[in-house]
Simulated assay, not measured.
Amino acid sequence: MTVHFHEEDLPAGVLADGPVAVDTETMGLVTPRDRLCVVQISDGQGDEHLIRFKVGSNYDAPNLKAALADPQRLKIYHFARFDLAAIEYYLGVTAAPVFCTKIASKLTRTYTDRHGLKNLVEELLGGSISKQQQSSDWGAPELNDAQRDYAASDVRYLHRLRDVFVERLARENRTELAQACYDFLPTRAKLDIAGWGDHDIFSHM
């Protein structure tokens, strides 16, 4: 297992075919205001790639964009709604098709309200991850080892979690429902960017 750090783009040819796990780190939770700083991506073969974008970046990352926009390559996220919005707004691509482990968890782990990645890794995989760096300064001139390890851990387990949730969704007869949610997520992200993040447009009021 190796964590690879890249500036401004993913090197060509480093990802194997098949699904990739994806995550993002930003300066905050308001997408148009809080710039995209890091994109993490892994093909599930044991390595994680961190692509850092500096202040003033034009986000011209053709290799990364090609992987994210590939309609034949599944992207696995935890809370895809946020990551899709950041990628759409800053990189200008729709990073679909989607599998979201947070949605899968909410549809299958109805016995709990704890759906964070840390909770899933502990319960379903018997592992442990630290969230200590979650609120650190991702726009700093240099990212320290703790930040890099944290960022890598956010994609390290997603392939294995997807395998678990594929089985659980099938067991609970909720696979089609989950897929409909995943298919809507790129549109949900666009609504967030456009200003409807806190509004339920399907409600009566």
Rank of each mutant, 00 (worst) to 15 (best):
L143I: 13
A152L: 10
L84S: 01
H159F: 09
G139W: 04
S136R: 14
Y90R: 01
P97S: 07
A140S: 15
R148Q: 15
E142T: 14
A170Q: 14
F99S: 07
D70I: 10
S105D: 01
Y157L: 02
V93D: 05
S136Q: 14
V155W: 11
P97I: 04
R81G: 11
T94N: 10
L169G: 00
L124T: 02
G139A: 08
I103R: 04
Q179C: 01
L161C: 05
F99K: 08
A178N: 13
V164W: 08
G126R: 12
Y111D: 15
D70S: 14
K106Q: 15
E123M: 10
Y90V: 01
L158K: 06
L169V: 00
P71Y: 05
P141W: 05
E142H: 13
D163T: 14
F79S: 13
Y150F: 15
T108Y: 00
Y90A: 03
A178R: 11
D113E: 13
H78K: 06
Q132H: 10
P141G: 08
P141A: 06
L177F: 03
L91N: 03
L125S: 09
A96C: 12
A104G: 03
E176N: 14
F99G: 09
A170N: 13
T112W: 11
T112H: 06
K102D: 02
G92I: 05
R162Q: 15
Y111G: 03
L158M: 07
K131A: 03
N173V: 06
S130P: 10
Y89L: 06
A180E: 14
A140K: 13
N144G: 09
R171G: 00
A80Y: 07
S105C: 09
I76S: 13
T94H: 11
Q132S: 14
L124V: 06
P141D: 05
S130G: 05
V93Y: 11
T94M: 06
P97W: 12
